[in-house]
Design a binder for these strands. Structure first.
Lengths: 235, 235
DNA sequence: CGTCATGCCGTAATTATTTAA
DNA sequence: ATTAAATAATTACGGCATGAC
């Protein structure tokens, strides 16, 4: 079946033709010689074992090999490969989880930003209101008797002024810095992520579900290899 | 160091006979045949070719096979494996990029949160201040003449009340919802962002077309070839 | 319709490098 | 320090999907 390439290779003076054209029965022979695909039973057994232990004691390895009719080496290799693949899947999961968290955080960030802006506006208006109140109060104080010259009044005056200053300062800070530092994550820049996938490859969503069918022991199964160990800290 | 060169006699006639009729059961089926590991020269050639094209035209495949003394199929498989490895690496890079973005966003979020809280406090104090001012004003109005019963005064009264309500509403919203929805990202759980990227929940909440802006065109391997060709996303 | 060529994926197995006892 | 384990990187095969005959 799949020997077309080898055949074509044979045409061009293959140095060796490790598959003799005449021996086109190779499919059978290969499949026979090298037992690809363990049986369903073997896989199931290995898999269920893996769920409880990602690493095998030599004891268990020998026992499983006996039980399943495999070489101990095959069992060991299966577990090695399994760990590697599991790590890969884990990475995908981590990525998706992180991305979900990121999106959620981004949404919260945006709404928080709006709330803050709203507060800022309120504060601004309130400050104006106070200003008016103060003006009127001053007018009245000017021609009226000094009946509110008690301590509390002076304290209030200071407070008022203090608030005004605070508010203005805050506003200035916002206007100057906020838009620089934070607009990066703002959604009013959709052009940045307009057409380009970056994530879309992983967010292919609809299909391409992964074989997460088996619920891995969430807690302890792979305690000996934490996720960050998978990443060489090159930075 | 190692005996990396036994490929010198690479072109000898043997090179075939993968198939060992004397198949010794299972364990060492293929490997004891030499010719694992392509030579340095072959790898280099394949690698440099891969940098310009991640996929080979049949022509080029045949030519490379001839040049390197490999089977066309081996070249094809090498490219296939290479693409897989490359994709894996790419995923790693994206993960790192996303993680960096996430951390940055988290930091911005926290600071924004603090700023909002500060605004909230200011607003609260300002509101109290106004309340006192109102009370005093009412007292004065009560025993004095109704000399400020003009339109402007009433408008101010309404404004004042409106602000108070707004502020209280805002405060309530914050107290009730904010702590629920956002406490996930609050700084009182630094463990989440410190070591682990919040794998907690696979919240499939909103999986819109968000695309983060990873700046990875800076990399070298994909300088000439378009990276998006490598991601057929949901073929 | 089937077949062939090719791509990707999962997987078995080997080799080289690291790590732990 | 040696040795046995795991891990990382490769090489290869089989199966499935797809598109061009």
């Amino acid at each position: 079946m799949m020997e077309s390439e080898e055949q074509s290779a044979a045409e061009e003076g293959d140095c060796c033709s490790w598959l003799d054209p005449t021996a086109e029965s190779s499919t059978k022979s290969v499949g026979d010689r090298r037992r690809k695909r363990f049986s369903e039973e073997q896989i199931k057994s290995l898999e269920s074992m893996f769920e409880t232990q990602t690493k095998l004691e030599p004891r268990q390895k020998l026992q499983m090999a006996r039980e399943l009719g495999l070489q101990p080496r095959q069992v060991a290799i299966w577990f090695q490969n399994k760990r590697a693949r599991w790590k890969s899947k884990q990475l995908e999961r981590e990525y998706r989880g992180l991305k979900a968290d990121y999106d959620a955080l981004l949404a919260s960030f945006e709404s928080l930003k709006k709330e803050k802006q709203a507060l800022l506006n309120q504060l601004h208006e309130l400050a104006e209101l106070i200003e008016k109140t103060e003006d009127r109060s001053n007018n009245r104080d000017g021609d009226g008797a000094s009946n509110d010259r008690d301590a509390e009044s002076k304290q209030e005056q200071r407070n008022r002024q203090s608030f005004k200053e605070e508010q203005e300062l805050e506003f200035a800070v916002y206007a100057e810095e906020e838009d620089k530092k934070l607009s990066y994550f703002s959604e009013d820049e959709p052009a940045m992520c307009a057409g380009q996938p970056a994530t879309s490859c992983l967010t292919s969503s609809a299909e391409q579900q992964f074989c997460f069918t088996t619920s891995w022991p969430s807690d302890q199964s792979c305690s000996n290899s934490q996720w960050w160990e998978f990443w060489p800290l090159s930075e």
